[in-house]
């Protein structure tokens, strides 16, 4: 216990130091004096930018803003403001980060749940029947590598609802890892356990729920964890495409507003949410894992 705790402390210290370095580099890179010097070094770029700024009706009275990339102070201000009121709603283009994340999470949750309902029973079938495994394998192998966003036009055309299309895209991207892992987990349940079930004349339903499911659960959960990871990656892109609500739309909207602080803030929130989701599945995985 002691050496591992010590290791934790040391790792934490290094993490903090790295974080400090990162902030320092950010600060130095975005400090007005520093950026001016870099621009001068590049050459004509600086004057062109100045002219462009003048054309746009801005003067260089606020150099931090015109240099583009936000500094630490601005970042902190945005984070503070956004986190103070995460759930405000001032119309379609101005919603708090909490609401946007909520939309995204709801879409991911729904698409993921439907995928689980389809993939886990189907995976059981594939894992238990080599015949079905072989029969369905060509379909799976072709459908699996398709980028989920490639389905978007087809989904929009057939479903005619952008929000449901988003959910469909999440469904289609989370279904494959769950399907493959469930099939693999079910197919590789130890022979001994199945033989025990056989000699005890266990009914198929009891066998499925009391032997195969717990035996394959760690593998199934691994599939779900991978699926959730992919779904969270895809939702941002999908929402950028369909627009309206969600964290992906938020990022795109703030980009259109040229509010880089909000974009960076949203990126951070996407990362944190993704991490929380992954930790949640790691916890679930730990619950069903058994030691032999």
């Amino acid at each position: 216990m002691k050496p591992s705790a010590q290791l934790g402390w040391r790792a934490g210290l290094i993490s903090l130091a790295l974080f400090g370095c990162l902030l320092l580099v950010w600060h130095l890179a975005t400090a007005p004096k520093e950026s001016a010097r870099i621009e001068a070094g590049v050459g004509g770029g600086a004057s062109a930018d100045d002219e462009y700024a003048k054309l746009m009706g801005k003067t260089s009275s606020s150099p931090a803003k015109t240099s583009g990339f936000p500094g630490l102070a601005q970042m902190g201000e945005t984070i503070r403001k956004e986190l103070a009121h995460p759930f405000y709603d001032n119309g379609p283009n101005d919603k708090g980060i909490g609401i946007q994340l909520g939309y995204s999470l709801a879409r991911v949750g729904l698409g993921f749940a439907i995928a689980a309902v389809v993939a886990i029973p189907l995976g059981f079938l594939l894992g238990m029947s080599p015949l079905m495994q072989r029969a369905l394998n060509p379909f799976i192998q072709i459908l699996k590598p398709i980028s989920p966003l490639a389905w978007m036009p087809l989904a929009l055309y057939t479903i005619k609802d952008s929000s449901i299309s988003g959910i469909f895209v999440i469904f289609i991207c989370s279904v494959w890892p769950m399907l493959m892992n469930t099939a693999f987990g079910v197919a590789s349940v130890r022979r001994d356990w199945l033989n025990v079930a056989k000699t005890l004349e266990v009914t198929p339903l009891r066998k499925a729920f009391l032997v195969i499911l717990p035996a394959a659960a760690p593998t199934i959960l691994t599939g779900m964890r991978i699926s959730m990871g992919i779904a969270w990656l895809v939702i941002v892109a999908a929402e950028m495409l369909v627009g309206g609500t969600g964290i992906g739309y938020f990022v795109w909207n703030e980009w259109n507003n040229l509010s880089l602080t909000s974009v960076i803030f949203a990126i951070l929130m996407i990362g944190v949410t993704g991490m929380v989701l992954d930790l949640l599945f790691a916890r679930l995985q730990k619950l069903v894992t058994y030691t032999e």
Partner: peptide, 15 residues
């Protein structure tokens, strides 16, 4: 069920 089997590898279900 008329024939009980004790397996070499004990075959207990770890969960």
């Amino acid at each position: 069920l008329d024939r009980g089997v004790v397996f070499q590898s004990h075959a207990l279900m770890p969960w």
